[in-house]
Design a protein around this nucleic acid. Structure first.
Length: 678
DNA sequence: GATCCTCGAGTTCT
DNA sequence: CTCGAGGATC
């Protein structure tokens, strides 16, 4: 019998050693030596011992994975070495171009050695081991700061609490925590049986579960993990190749994807891609592409980084998921300008992780081009990122009673005539502001963030205000009382008072914002700013002739006519007068002699991705303040593209055109060096 | 008259 | 973000 403490301690040590060994065989190598029942017996024996002698319990005992108490909130963790994001490739050509860039930078014609691996659709994490012990686990977050999820990661059986063999002083490893498809399905079935919320896809399930506060809940979730990279390292001479480093991680007990392969050149990458794509459906977890990394660390270092993405790696994404569904109906939405947009109402379908039930068809030309009819079975995909798109009709499945989509002769909202100008793709309702849809959309535009920025005036509220006849034009908003607002649905005294305060705040504005808020056709933010700057005052613009308006930079005959027409309408002049009577005001424009001179004069900037230290708006302001120009699309004339986290297609465009790319740090440095003050 | 550069407008789901 | 179209330029 184990009544003696010292022999019990020895036995406990032995059991722990065995259990850790079998965990490694089972979870990391996927090659168990003993049956589940035998494993359970070892675990039970250890638990019994620890119950009998609680002083034997150590924090890293296999029985203590779920030892931590629930946390009250997730604390922030700063990554010592930032967690990178990857550039994306969607076509073979993208991959070939990537390989060419790599070889050009390295000035070599020889085939580059790449480490290739599947890109798992999960949650990126960073784990820190000190003296071989797991001390910290954090999510990727924005790459610089993540959240502390140590309490949950400890419960993942595939994650060693202690590394095997002789581990370095400090080892940070990066990997992907994910949920295998089978485990995800079982989890959802359990949730469904209990009437709880289900997860839309394994990725969401993994992300949600990992951020649980209570580790006991997380412990019931079927997580798995693969490691693929390094963060901070101390006390280990990292081998010369990425693939060798992974091999060493595996020996320390860290799980590495069995599909990691070393390939040669772009051709090797593409062959690997096809091989993995063919096996995609049979893998027990979801992947959304493959990743290629230059294998030799010296070369990685030589290539360096652009913004937060390494030049030595790229993610080759699989094509967007496509699904079949049925077009139940096609309805026409009326926009602010009266534009009638056909929208397909779809039989709800899961595509790429979310349920899609609507998809825009843009205009009638598009409907005809794709020959979409009501009742058709269509292929739907989520284009690149988010927006659902009807790709094509499956003609074989067209029912005999499929209905052709007709442009309505009258506006579905107000009944006014619908007109389509010769040569224009868009049909419009002629009801103008008599059309409730146009009125509502105009009000929404007026209140939007970039216009007068009226916080709390959302769609629901506007709908009610217009439907009840309380508001007919923007000026009416400023006559609303707290009592009137509080009588609306989903609106209490408190929110009503808040909205009135927001309205009050919005009265202090600027001329460009005000002009933009008016919603004159073809006058967006840039044109509104140009007009404001050219004329200086609203009065000057109101009195200007078409010819004078055309003298504004970037304003031609079409836009000038729209502006003149807008101010010719008695109704519009009255609304403006009423707005000013309610106290809407703006400071005089300081008329700038030509473009304001500054250190950045003559430079054109384009922003993409999210910046850490400031919003994109603020970045634009600072560029303009220094005399630079901010544009929305990249061309040969662009001086710099500023790249933040998760950049869009503009980064690719910039690379193609050879436009200089600045990451956030370089951008801040530029601002600093250009700033007049010290 | 053709081409390139920009801007404006509309859109989905959580 | 993407598409369509207005404006500028050659």
């Amino acid at each position: 019998m184990m009544s003696d403490l010292s022999s019990a301690a020895a036995r406990a040590r032995e059991l722990r050693r065995q259990i850790e060994h079998h965990n490694y065989r089972y979870y990391v190598l996927d090659d168990p030596e003993i049956s589940d029942a035998e494993y359970d017996r070892l675990m039970q024996e250890l638990k019994a011992l620890e119950t009998q002698f609680p002083e034997l319990i150590t924090p890293d005992s296999p029985t203590q994975r779920v030892g931590a108490a629930p946390v009250s909130g997730l604390e922030e963790v700063v990554h010592k070495v930032p967690m990178l994001s990857l550039d994306n490739a969607f076509t073979d050509e993208d991959v070939i171009a990537f390989d060419r860039r790599v070889r050009e930078r390295l000035e070599t014609d020889a085939d580059i050695e790449y480490a290739a691996e599947p890109k798992i659709d999960g949650v990126a994490v960073s784990l820190r081991y000190e003296k071989g012990r797991l001390v910290l686990a954090a999510t990727r977050g924005d790459g610089l700061r993540g959240e502390n999820v140590t309490h949950n990661v400890r419960t993942i059986k595939a994650v060693p609490i202690e590394l095997r063999g002789k581990a370095p002083e400090v080892l940070e490893v990066r990997g992907e925590v994910f949920m295998p498809i089978a485990g995800f399905k079982a989890l959802n079935e359990r949730a469904l049986a209990r009437g709880e919320r289900t997860f839309a896809n394994p990725r969401n399930a993994a992300a949600g579960s990992l951020r649980q506060l209570d580790p006991r809940l997380a412990a019931t979730r079927p997580f798995d993990v693969f490691f693929y990279g390094l963060g901070e390292v101390q006390g280990w001479t990292v081998p010369p190749r990425h693939s060798d480093a992974l091999e060493q991680l595996r020996e320390w007990g860290l799980k590495i994807s069995p599909l990691v392969r070393v390939v040669m050149g772009a051709q090797g990458c593409l062959e690997y891609y096809r091989e993995i794509a063919a096996r995609r459906e049979s893998l027990p977890y979801e992947i959304d592409g493959v990743v290629y990394k230059v294998n030799r660390f010296v070369l990685q270092r030589e290539l360096g980084y652009v913004a937060r993405a390494p030049r030595w790696a790229i993610a080759h994404k699989f094509p967007a998921h496509e699904e079949h569904t049925i077009v139940r109906d096609v309805e026409f939405q009326v926009g602010r300008t009266g534009a009638l947009t056909p929208v397909a109402r779809l039989e709800p379908v899961f595509v790429g992780g979310v349920t899609v039930s609507n998809a825009t068809l843009h205009n009638m030309d598009e409907v005809r081009r794709k020959d979409i009819r009501i009742g058709d079975t269509v292929v739907v995909r989520r284009a690149g990122d988010v927006i659902p798109e009807v790709v094509k009709v499956i003609l074989d499945r067209r029912p005999p009673n499929a209905r052709i989509v007709e442009l309505p002769a009258h506006c579905p909202v107000c009944g006014a005539d619908v007109e389509r100008e010769e040569g224009e793709a868009i049909a419009r309702c002629t009801g103008g502001l008599f059309c409730p849809a146009q009125r509502k959309e105009s009000l929404r535009h007026f209140a939007s963030r970039r216009a007068l920025d009226i916080d709390g005036l959302g769609t629901k509220i506007i709908d009610q205000l217009v439907d009840r006849g309380l508001v007919r034009n923007p000026a009416d908003l400023y006559a609303l009382t707290v009592e009137q607002l509080a009588s609306l649905e989903r609106m209490g005294e408190k929110s009503a008072a808040k909205l009135v305060a927001a309205l009050e705040r919005s009265k202090n504005t600027t001329l460009p914002r005000f002009l933009y808020a008016l919603g004159i056709r073809d006058v967006g933010e840039a044109t509104a700013a140009a007009l404001a700057e050219h004329f200086g005052t609203l009065e000057a613009l109101e009195e200007a002739t078409i010819e004078q308006i055309q003298e504004t930079p970037d304003v031609g005959p079409v836009v000038a006519a729209h502006v003149r027409h807008f101010f010719d309408q008695v109704h519009n002049r009255e609304v403006i007068r009423a707005l000013r009577a309610h106290g809407v005001r703006w400071p005089d424009m300081q008329r700038r002699s030509a473009a304001q001179e500054g250190p950045l004069s003559g430079k054109t900037f384009v922003l993409t991705g999210t910046l850490d230290s400031m919003s994109r708006d603020e970045a634009s302001k600072r560029i303009v303040a220094l005399g630079g120009k901010v544009s929305s699309s990249v061309s040969k004339k662009t001086s710099y593209v500023i790249v933040g986290a998760d950049p869009g297609s503009k980064l690719k465009k910039a690379q193609e055109l050879g436009v200089e790319i600045l990451d956030e740090a370089a951008f801040l440095a530029l601002l600093k060096s250009a700033a007049p003050r010290g």
